[in-house]
Amino acid sequence: MLPSLEARLACRNGMASTTAGVANGFVQGNLAILPEKLAAAFHRFCQLNPKPCPIIGMSDVGDPRIPTLGEDLDIRTDLPRYRIWRDGEVIDEPTDIKKYWRDDLVAFVLGCSFSFEEALLAEGLPIKHIQRQVRVPMYRTNIACGSAGPFAGPMVVSMRPFKPADAIRAVQITTRFPAVHGAPVHLGHPHLIGIKDIAKPDYGDPVPVEDDEIPVFWACGVTPQAVIAAAKLPFAMTHAPGLMLVTDLQNKQLAVL
């Protein structure tokens, strides 16, 4: 059995912890589930914002399976935790969404930075949130996304601190992975992108930035959640930040040489 399928089955059986470092080598994905009437506009939003919202898979209308992403994959049960949104507010964070599933829903899976973390680790670059076994810190920024229909709002970024020489190497490595956010969107000086306190992330958990380190920020697939909140959509479902879908795609398949 593939480690990716084992991870999905663990989620199906109640695992509800971060998937950072789980099923190494396999692509993980962010999730956004929307009614069919909004799917075309969201697809356009992703096309306009490929850095935070790179689509790696979509379901057919009403179908919880996405065969291109994995065998025996059920989008309703195979993530550790979900978020249910009504009118832009989170009303529930269940470990499966069977009771919320409808025949008019379309699931979008977006590339996740956990995929390029494998390449960073392979080069010996330390990743603090993995070392500390916490969720990656994520922040809403003042970087505006391109809008499509009701979808408009700020880009969300994830942050990893590195020493300057390692930060340069991290840029070089992640540039090879455009399907999972690619190169960073900002380095250093959080206030320049609207982050007031780096010790207080909007999503995930804080990690310290030492005096000899700089924060490096990548576009993040949690961006749709900020946009769903801003648009006050009547109904949507997403993953809980940091608790992703593990697919059967391999990270090395996404590298651009």
Results as ranks from 00 to 15, higher is better:
222 V>A: 01
7 A>Y: 00
207 V>S: 10
131 Q>E: 15
224 P>I: 02
144 A>P: 00
68 T>I: 14
115 S>E: 11
223 T>R: 00
104 D>K: 12
178 P>M: 04
33 I>Y: 00
255 A>P: 02
9 L>R: 11
145 C>W: 00
29 G>R: 02
57 G>N: 02
216 V>K: 06
182 G>Q: 05
36 E>Y: 10
56 I>C: 08
20 A>Y: 15
155 M>I: 15
53 C>E: 13
117 E>Y: 03
133 Q>S: 15
39 A>E: 07
150 P>H: 06
186 H>Y: 06
219 A>N: 02
197 D>F: 11
45 F>Y: 06
245 L>G: 01
191 H>R: 10
75 I>G: 01
220 C>P: 06
18 T>G: 15
143 I>K: 00
170 A>V: 12
165 A>R: 13
174 T>E: 00
245 L>P: 02
73 L>W: 00
175 T>R: 15
171 V>K: 13
148 A>P: 13
251 N>P: 09
249 L>K: 00
98 K>M: 11
60 D>Y: 06
150 P>Y: 05
197 D>I: 12
53 C>H: 09
208 P>D: 14
92 D>W: 04
27 V>F: 08
57 G>K: 04
29 G>W: 03
236 A>S: 10
24 N>S: 13
92 D>Y: 02
69 L>C: 07
97 I>W: 02
68 T>K: 12
253 Q>V: 12
209 V>G: 03
140 R>S: 06
163 K>G: 11
2 L>P: 12
29 G>Q: 05
185 V>K: 00
53 C>K: 10
70 G>E: 03
2 L>R: 14
46 C>R: 02
249 L>R: 01
202 D>N: 07
239 H>G: 09
82 Y>F: 03
106 V>S: 10
